[in-house]
Design a binder for these strands. Structure first.
Length: 422
DNA sequence: TCTGGGGTCCTAGGACCC
DNA sequence: TCTGGGGTCCTAGGACCC
């Protein structure tokens, strides 16, 4: 909440080619003489495990037309010399934490927006750290020197303008979008697709209205847009005009809305037995994270993706909130049986939503003793796993080694992800 | 030779209630 | 025997973000 007439100053810090830069930094610190950022390179999933897409690319790779999200073999056609390294999520989490720790020194209000993006409230911080642009340069240079990777810093009167400023030109730059004039000059000429929240579908609809640039969207009739795009029309119109009042949510105090894990399976699954193994594995990691967050869930959903890449889902609200692995798994099995249309499945997911705090767990009328036992078992397994690692305890169904006992979730701490409305 | 995994929010339609 | 209308809850699907 900002007082009327009070001018906020928000900074957005965005790591340049985060996954790739972090890997390169790590390699250099361990004595490598090759900087991945200086050659055509990418972080990519494992093709043999059918996860072969580009997760991040170097600037030289970008010059060959390599794009994030594209399938590996296509990227290799464009750039045969492309060096592809596997992802390392634990490393990313460590680098992200290090970045966050530095930024916390400059403001009491720092919001983790994603693993590689942070919003920082700089309002009223000038007496301590100087004018915003100078401070941003110092912060940026300090991160490069101390942590070894570069960031862009965007500065604006709200989160939207700060974020858009940070995207203007990369890498290792500071940009501002403080005034109406700056917005019109720097942001309005950009293709409308570059506006936060304008994806492929919205771009297509806007084109049909003859809107191609952010400026054209900003000057379009608001009522007309609401007519065509419903409430979303208002959102994008405001964003195009640099309007946004959303607060910076400091630290972890945002409530998580849901926890999910999903996985692409090495071989298509077409039996209940195999699907159950995958689903149990996913349920294990979801419920572990749920308990770590000291939460229970009231909605459980199972997500399907077929070998034809057709996706669908099935969910149910349960009577009493729970975080007991085998209770959740019981519902997951039911949902799978009801939802599965019998196709070959390449991908399965488990997600829990409608979370509540676990401190006053609703007493179940029946079988309280049974429930206590299950909760004690989960707690004991969680303790062993946190002490000796996730593979220290394994359910017997996984003993044949065909499926991993804990799929998804890196064990890294969870933090709230920003909402799409900023 | 195919297209990851983690999220959030919005909308539409049906069930159900008064 | 009649079919108005408002409200809430639930589920599925779609759009977007990184």
């Amino acid at each position: 909440m900002s007082m009327a007439g009070h001018r906020r100053i928000i900074m957005h810090v965005d790591v340049n080619s985060a996954f790739l830069a972090w890997q390169a930094t790590y390699d250099l610190q361990r004595g490598s003489t090759l900087d991945l950022r200086e050659i055509p390179s990418a972080v990519g999933g494992n093709q043999a495990e059918r996860r072969g897409i580009i997760l991040a690319k170097s600037t030289p790779a970008k010059k060959y037309g390599v794009e994030t999200g594209e399938v590996l073999w296509q990227a290799l056609q464009k750039c045969p010399s492309l060096v592809v390294v596997p992802p390392n999520y634990d490393l990313y989490m460590k680098c992200s934490n290090a970045l966050y720790a530095v930024l916390e020194e400059y403001s009491p209000k720092v919001q983790r927006f994603s693993v590689d993006e942070v919003f920082m409230e700089y309002t009223n911080m000038q007496p301590h750290f100087g004018e915003p642009v100078e401070a941003a340069h110092r912060i940026k240079d300090r991160i490069r020197k101390e942590l070894g990777f570069t960031v862009n810093v965007g500065i604006g009167p709200n989160k939207l303008t700060a974020k858009m400023a940070g995207e203007l030109k990369k890498p290792d730059m500071v940009h501002t979008l403080m005034t109406r004039e700056e917005i019109e000059k720097k942001m309005w000429p950009l293709p409308v697709r570059e506006l936060f929240m304008v994806g492929r579908q919205t771009e297509k609809k806007l084109k049909l209205m003859n809107i191609y640039t952010i400026g054209e969207l900003a000057r379009a009739d608001r009522k007309f847009l609401c007519d065509k795009l419903k409430s979303f029309g208002n959102v994008v119109w405001c964003y195009a005009n640099g309007l946004d009042e959303s607060p910076v949510h400091a630290g972890y105090n945002l409530i998580m809305k849901g926890i999910g894990n999903s996985t692409t399976i090495k071989h298509d699954v077409d039996t209940h037995e195999d699907a159950y193994k995958v689903l149990l594995s996913l349920t294990e990691s979801v419920s572990l994270r749920l308990r770590a967050a000291r939460a229970c869930c009231r909605v459980i959903s199972v997500e399907f993706r077929t070998d034809q890449l057709q996706g669908y889902s099935h969910q149910r609200k349960i009577f009493a909130a729970t975080n007991v692995t085998m209770e959740i798994f019981g519902v997951v099995k039911e949902l799978f049986d009801e939802g599965w249309k019998g196709e070959k499945l390449r991908h399965l997911g488990v997600r829990v939503t409608d979370l509540t705090a676990d401190d006053f767990m609703q007493m179940t009328v029946f079988d309280q003793e049974q429930k206590d036992k299950k909760m004690a078992l989960d707690a004991a397994i969680d303790r062993i796993r946190s002490r000796y690692g996730n593979s220290a305890v394994m359910r017997a169904v996984f003993a044949d080694g065909n499926f991993a006992p804990m799929m998804g979730g890196s064990g890294a701490e969870d933090y709230p992800v920003m909402s799409s409305i900023l």
